[in-house]
Structures are given as C-alpha cells and as structure tokens.
Amino acid sequence: MTVTLASSDGTALASAPDAGAALTVRGMTVSYGETPVIFSIDMDVLPGSMTAIVGPNGAGKSTLLKAVLGIVKPLSGTVRVFDRPLREALPRVAYVPQRASVDWDFPTRVIDVVMMGLGRELGLLGRVRAHHRARAMDCLERVGMTEFAARQIGQLSGGQQQRVFLARALAQGADLYLLDEPFAGVDAATEAAIIAVLKELRAAGKTVVAVHHDLSTVPDYFSDVFLINRTRIAQGPVEDVFTPEMLDRTYGGRLATAQLGGLTRDAV
C-alpha cells in the first residue's frame, strides 16, 4: 500500500523521513475516546535545533510530546529518533515533564530524584555507587542546585522543582531533550538558569524541543517553531514561521493584531 503524505499546511513531504533528522513524526493521531486530541501530526526536528511547540490551550502540545515518548498510546503514527525506531533510540532521549504531573510531597530527596535520570545506567537492580552520586551532583551543579541536594523535594519552590527536573533530564545524558512547559510558573532567576542550560546543550550539538507558552520570548530563546492547534499549522525557522499571519491561524484570531505585531516585530 502506498501512502502519499502531505502536511496540513499544504507543503508536500517526502514519503521517507529525512536521513539524519533528530526527530521525525508521521501521522501522529491521539484520541481520548473518539475525540482526537491531535490529528495526523507530522513533525521534523533537525539535529542541533531548538524548537518551540506553540499553540493555544488544549491544542495538544503536551499530548504530542507524550505520544512521541510513548507515554500516551497513539491511535496511529510513527516516531523515529535519529533515524531509528523510538524503542531503540529511547536512551538518547531525555524528558522534562510538567512540574504539576507529580506529587511533590513524595518522600524523596533532590539527589534521589536526579539519580532517577541515571535509571538506564544503574540498571533495574544495580547498586548506587560513588560515581553515580557524583554524576547526579554534577547535574545539580549545572542548574545551580547543589546546596539543595539533601532537601526533601516538597520544601522547594516551584522554580527549584523545575530545575531539579531539568537536572534529572541532564543525568539521562541524552542527545534529544523534550521539555513540557519548562518555564511555566517559575521565577525570573530560574527561567534565566534554564535557558542558559538549554543554550549550553545546543552549543554542545544537542537538540531541544520544548512546549512553550510565552510568545514574547520565542524569538529570543528558540531557533525553530512548531505551531499546533490539534493539527500542525506550520513548522520552520522562527523568522519564517513565527509571523502574525501564522499565529493568527494557530490561535484562530484570539490574539489581538497589535499583540501579534508586537510579538513578532523583532523576528520578521
């Protein structure tokens, strides 16, 4: 059976994924019951790029990330990471879930959470050794949280919790980083610390994809943007895609024109 693939913004796509893409998603559909949350999404992320997934509330941004990682079971669709099936490539993928997705009263300390990122290396049953602990401390150092290593996680502020999640992702030692709203509800210092780490990762040749809700910072933080509202609206470099017209299509006219103009003036 031959299937011709076309993305929803009309541009034809090669039927085979680009060799060397960091992440290739084809025809991803996820539904709860019989209501599709995301419908037939295609996505191509180039290695070394930093992509913002942008769209209104309920557009399926988080669902897309979860489906890519296999946390949510898609109805249809394929995911390839560095040109391998997801299952094989999972060790090269790190994930930062939404902060609100866990119970922060859980009895565990900051250092223990970060060491959960070492899961694969530790094995299911392996013993925690000094070099594992040292690796976890290095990751905490990179997000400026070493002094909190022994704290119970419930005693942290929202921004500190987010940094712990980022440190756990760093401990995964991956090449592709998927982040779900890393800047939601964090203080300015944390936002600066996180973006510094992400830019470091990019400088080291890693690929970053983040669900992002603050339109005003998109051009500063990201190289590429993926616009989504249940289906893919557009994807490409910020200067090409992050335009008032495209945002208008994404948000269905819910953003004021003046607002759109102000947001993208620098980029256009």
Binding site: L90, P97, V102, M116, R120
Partner: peptide
Amino acid sequence: AFDPGFAQATGQ
C-alpha cells in the same frame, strides 16, 4: 510511584 510518565520515558 513517583513519576510513571518519566519512568516510561526511560524505557521502563
């Protein structure tokens, strides 16, 4: 127990 989504994303 702490974070099933993350555990799944690490291949467990």
